[in-house]
């Protein structure tokens, strides 16, 4: 989807639930994947992803298009939730109950699905070891490293997501890598 198509879809989504659904379909995998790689926890990734889309829905009518991808806005919400220590709000509790009730009615086990993905993650030992080192970094370095190397974002895209200048992002990345190297060198497993 190009930026112009996305702008039209966001505009439609202000009054049309189906258009919001299309935005959701486009970005759920990216946001869920990002939060999962940032937190390495399926449950947290589920909750934060739900929170991100609920917040996006709550603010869609007042959303002002600023010529930046909608995904950047979603990443920012996700990053805010991760950095500020995610806390469930009352709306998300209702939403979660809604999801769980639907699962019971459809006779589906959400826990089985989560357990399967959790087990998949556990197989990626190298990722988990790296993740353990990355989470020791201050958040400002964690986010640039994950966006650059796990999410494969360009510096220009990271600038938009984080709302920082290119020089700042490059400096943070350079500095973050140096710090990560020190942490990894201290860690005997690498």
């Amino acid at each position: 989807m190009d930026l112009e198509q996305e702008r039209e879809l966001v505009f439609k989504a202000k009054t049309d639930a189906d258009a919001f659904g299309l935005l959701y379909d486009e970005y759920y995998p990216k946001i869920f994947g990002y939060v999962l790689r940032r937190t390495a926890s399926v449950e947290t990734a589920k909750d934060i992803t739900s929170e991100v889309f609920l917040k996006a829905l709550q603010s869609i009518k007042n959303f002002r298009w600023r010529n930046i991808p909608f995904s950047a806005y979603l990443y920012r919400i996700a990053e805010h939730e991760i950095s500020n220590g995610y806390k469930r709000n009352k709306h998300i509790i209702f939403l979660k109950q809604d999801i769980e009730n639907s699962a019971i009615i459809s006779d589906i086990s959400l826990d089985d699905e989560s357990a399967r993905v959790e087990a998949d993650i556990q197989k990626h030992e190298e990722f988990l070891l790296l993740h353990q080192c990355i989470v020791k970094l201050p958040h400002i370095y964690q986010e640039v490293i994950v966006l650059r190397y796990f999410e494969k974002k360009l510096i220009s895209e990271i600038c938009i997501i984080l709302g920082k200048r290119e020089g700042t992002v490059k400096s943070l990345l350079n500095r973050g890598l140096k710090k990560l190297k020190i942490i990894m060198d201290e860690n005997a497993t690498f």
Partner: peptide
């Protein structure tokens, strides 16, 4: 990695 059921049910709940 994706949770297909969570994805579908969250969409339904949001909409």
């Amino acid at each position: 990695a994706e949770l297909h059921t969570h994805r579908r049910l969250l969409k339904t709940a949001l909409l």
